[in-house]
């Protein structure tokens, strides 16, 4: 049974950033990643808001700066068991390998909300309805594939905010924080790829909290003519020519809205990933959604109620990529302090 200073569960931005910091401090580090490749959700995203940094650049920086001789990375590996053995943590993976470590860092991240759960939007039923993740894949290829061919019509694209966020009925009361600005970013990108199109964004309210977000929102309107409509979409139905018609209420005009679109993008929210839910319940540190609960949000946000178990990133709550990176930094410091005391 191999012994490490620290086992990091999850090889996304949080896990890799922590691995980079800790390996450079010469701690013997193991990263367990359930997918075939490391990088987590960075692999699903083309460019990052608000400055259109390619996600691959962030991933490249992290992998290049991890100190190889101190780090072991095991992909296609998920954790099945985690328990305390004497003063160490024993982690069992899906290949029945067992590892020992002084500390464990949970960075299992999030999954996007399963849009099929909001059947009224018809995801999986109408080809015109896609999610923000699907759109990002299209943007990576540099083309937007409209399911219905046409040559003579101006394309219409809708973004629908808060799909599976701030939605009592789907059981997710929280705001996913990323979708507002992400839709602005994607709307601009869509307009760049298909300049001859009309883009509408349906929202409850726009939460442009981060640096440069508000500026990007303004730019999207002034330079790219993106239209913002305040109102939740009630339902989407097919038209005779296989496009979709969207029903909503423009709550600023107090008028019902019925519009036909070539493409509808659902801005899916963030839910704890399956790995997050499994680990948080195995360790009994889960909240009502399955997120990992940190010891104290204000002063001990990377600690949990289990000594030696640390937490960073979106397995804790909804964070942006820069926030996740900074959270992983502070987790690395907490872990280094913990290991030094031993």
């Amino acid at each position: 049974m191999e012994k490490f200073d620290i086992i990091i569960i999850g090889g996304g931005p949080a896990g890799l950033n922590a691995a980079m910091r800790l390996s450079n401090m010469n701690y013997k580090t193991l990263v367990l990643e359930k997918e075939k490749v490391i990088g987590g959700k960075l692999n699903q995203w083309d460019k990052l808001f608000p400055d259109f940094t390619p996600a691959i650049d962030v991933l490249k920086y992290l992998t290049e700066n991890i100190k190889q001789e101190n780090t072991q990375i095991s992909t296609s590996t998920s954790v099945t068991k985690i328990d305390k053995s004497d003063n160490l943590w024993k982690v069992t993976d899906s290949n029945n390998n067992e590892y020992l470590a002084d500390a464990v860092l949970i960075t299992t991240g999030f999954d996007v909300f399963d849009a099929r759960r909001k059947e009224e939007y018809g995801y999986g039923i109408y080809p015109c309805v896609i999610t923000s993740v699907d759109l990002e894949k299209m943007l990576e290829t540099g083309t937007i594939n409209f399911p219905i061919e046409t040559s003579d019509r101006r394309r219409r694209i809708a973004f629908i905010q808060c799909v599976g966020s701030r939605d009592e009925k789907s059981g997710n009361h929280f705001c996913s924080r990323n979708c507002c600005i992400c839709a602005v970013k994607q709307a601009i990108e869509v307009k760049e790829v298909v300049p001859d199109s009309d883009v509408y964004c349906f929202y409850m309210d726009l939460r442009m909290f981060g640096q440069h977000y508000e500026e990007l929102y303004r730019r999207s309107q002034q330079e790219f003519n993106v239209n913002f409509v305040r109102g939740r979409v009630s339902e989407i139905a097919p038209t005779f020519d296989n496009r979709v018609v969207l029903k909503a209420e423009d709550t600023l005009l107090s008028r019902p809205v019925k519009m036909t679109f070539d493409l509808v993008v659902l801005m899916v929210g963030m839910n704890p990933s399956e790995g997050t839910k499994t680990l948080s319940s195995l360790l009994d540190i889960n909240d009502e959604y399955g997120y990992v609960v940190s010891q104290d949000e204000h002063v001990a946000d990377n600690l949990t109620n289990k000594a030696g178990v640390f937490v960073a990133g979106t397995c804790k709550r909804q964070l942006t990529v820069p926030e996740t990176m900074k959270d992983a930094d502070s987790a690395a410091i907490e872990i280094a302090n913990f290991l030094n005391r031993r």
């Binding site: 059947e119 009224e120 018809g122 039923i125 109408y126 009630s234 339902e235 989407i236 139905a237 097919p238």
Partner: peptide, 9 residues
Amino acid sequence: SHLTPGIID
């Protein structure tokens, strides 16, 4: 049923 288009389909 209009809110569950799978049924209409």
